[in-house]
Amino acid sequence: MKRFLITAFILAIFFIIGCQSEPNTKLTFIPVINGKKITCTHDFKFNEQLWRLNSFQFYLSKIKFNGINQTVTYDQSKTDVSHQVALLGTACRGGKNWQLILDNTINKLAELEFELAVPFELNHSNPLSSKAPLNQADMFWTWQLGHKFFRLDMVNQTHVDKNWSFHLGSTGCDSASVMRAPKVPCKNPNRVKFTIKQFDYRKPIYIHLDRLFFNLTLNQKHTCMGDANKESCNLLYENLNKGDLFSQEVREVK
């Protein structure tokens, strides 16, 4: 009897541990403007105007530590999920997620790499049968263009009718109609790679939106929905490709 009890106890411990999550690394993201955190519930100032977030979401993929591919993980209640892509951000009136969990434990400084994008092989598939988070309708254009990799919608609180949006995704995609996927990569993939050389797992990653806005006047005229011929889009792509949108350093500018 004693042997049975001991075996049962050991198995019980085994199952308790089995129900718990594995050790992992959490990447926490914080959007900032001039070093100051921004949220959906408070106005923020940029270039002497007041703004409010309406939606800020983005996909990350091809995440690597010291060149080794990482897998995105979720708690056990989430099934049918993609382990290659993470969706971060908030749609303000809906849910939010600012934390990405990787299934490897990183406990020392490492080089972190990721793409602000959805890989081509996942980007143009049927959103209905796609695994979460690739089934988020407000982050999907069409099968032809695929997903919006980055979506930022802001409301101007100072001037009426001067709201601003930036939706980033692949453009120049050739297919029979908007509901058909391209067979070859799009002319402008618009996937941007970022590197944080000395990533410290204990610190958050700041998203410096003021660096994205560099040299850009924010208003409806300068909204960018991916038009490669639009000056504002080209400026935004240029700012993104500087590679300093994400960093672990932050300094508040008064």
Partner: peptide, 18 residues
């Protein structure tokens, strides 16, 4: 947008509500 032609959707596989 989306499969139901409204962005106000939720289903069993969706992680974040809108």
């Amino acid at each position: 947008g989306g499969f139901n032609f409204t962005q106000s959707t939720a289903h069993e596989k969706q992680l974040l509500d809108r």
